[in-house]
Amino acid sequence: MNALTDILPARPAVAPPAAHRLSMEAPARFGLLLGPALLLLYWAVLSVTGFLDPHILPAPWTAVTTAIQLIREGRLQEHLAVSAGRAAAGLLLGSVTGVIFALVSGLTLLGGYVIDGLVQLKRGIPILALIPFMVLWLGIGETMKVAVIATSVFFPIYIQTHTALRAIDLRHVELAETLRLSRWQFLRHVVLPGALPGFLTGLRFGATGAWLALVVVEQLNATSGIGYMVTLARNYAQTDVMLVGLVVYALLGFGSDAAVRILERRALRWRRTLGR
């Protein structure tokens, strides 16, 4: 019987782990940048070959040089700071109120009737259609701008958090009862962590909504901010400055989405899901 072991080649002692069949491979670190990179390449080729009129859309490197110039003059960072401040204020206000309203409506009967009914009613109206009223009530200053952004953040946060609250596993509620958790402990250890995935989904939508609202309100009688910079550039037909504004918006949107994703991954480490 030794003959056999002599003839057969030694099998590797450690078999490699089987590949998962349905789940995806772990994503490469910067995999999400692939699409944008291809787009950039396409655009650059069109510009170099002269297919793209610089008055319609300047070359990518024009955007870079213009951006550098704007930064030297201090204009870009100034406008950016103002815009980011507005977005952050609106995002914070909208998130906090969204979560509070979701909790009240998800955990109390009366709150559910009153708040959820109103939210469902509002769902049919696009936020931007409310702007004329916001202007009427709040004027055209910063208050209105932040209020519009906060409103557009509030709804996705509220809806996603509320949905997640409603989906909390009854078995976990039973567990909390048998462990005699207090209301506060129940909220802190069962309700809030259970609703967190929903909240984070809402936050992603909310961040997108915040930038969208920002673009719109900054074209309404603003005297500062990226939107103002773009409006001004349009009046003077400075397509390169307009382009810089567009790129900045894109970067902000991309960046905030990535930030929320990282937050999501850190906060939801306990989950095993397909897409991570």
Binding site: R171, H172, E174, L175, H189, V190, P193, G194, L196, W270, R271
Partner: peptide
Amino acid sequence: DARLLPWM
């Protein structure tokens, strides 16, 4: 079921 809270 063990009914552990998955996030803890």
